[in-house]
Design a protein around this nucleic acid. Sequence first.
DNA 1: ACCTCACTACGAAACTCTTCGTTGACATCC
DNA 2: GGATGTCAACGAAGAGTTTCGTAGTGAGGT
Lengths: 129, 129
Amino acid sequence: MTDRQPPRPTDSELAILGVLWERGPSTVRDVHDALNKDGATGYTTVLKILQIMTEKGLVVRDETERAHVYESRYGEQKTQRQLLADLAERAFGGSATKLVMQALSGRKASASELTAIRELLDTLEGEAK
Amino acid sequence: MTDRQPPRPTDSELAILGVLWERGPSTVRDVHDALNKDGATGYTTVLKILQIMTEKGLVVRDETERAHVYESRYGEQKTQRQLLADLAERAFGGSATKLVMQALSGRKASASELTAIRELLDTLEGEAK
DNA sequence: ACCTCACTACGAAACTCTTCGTTGACATCC
DNA sequence: GGATGTCAACGAAGAGTTTCGTAGTGAGGT
């Protein structure tokens, strides 16, 4: 028991997680306001999803104040890696390398982005074995 | 109208698409048998999902024979890129570069894999005006 | 004390996904 | 030509997701 691996977040959950990562611990109203800059989602809808996410263990809730404060339980990078590993497994036959190469060739990257990736490669190659 | 962009395949649909990509056009029985090497999925379940995928436009169906023959409508790479673009949008703030870098640092790659990626980078950088 | 506002909780409705049992059509084999 | 087996189609059940209306509770102002 202790801590199982987190479940895959749905689309709405991911949108909320994005706000929590950006803002840090937030109330329902905070999240709702941040989300409604573009899309329109009802206040109770956000609340409900946050409640479900609490049950799932995706977020933790601080109930000491009247307006409960929610915080993402897992960091942005950890969640992103989880999602990538999941996608690699489901759609790339488990090969993260194939995923990377497809992602690279699938879009135009600017020269500076390519340089950044190349530097990352240098670092990885340096520490590999 | 004409042709809209394909919907995101679900997990089961992706498993079936994997078989179709590997085998080429196949009957329901073909897919079911290929899938049941490891997991256990009922025949009618595979049939039902293929019917739904036909409605969605993810596969095309040849009904000339008694045993209908299904074929993936979109290529493996196209679908993979679609999924990656989707994930980048939903979880990486639209930045495919962040996705790539996260995927690279999130796992150990062998030296040969790193080399392959580096070569791809060279190609991309060459043609990036 | 009372009114009003903000907040959480509850639950229902609509929708999708996954699964499979059943049915009816069709072909093939004695 | 009747039995057997394979096939697509239909429908339904159960779980999960997303949405929101309504109710209840508490806090703060007048």
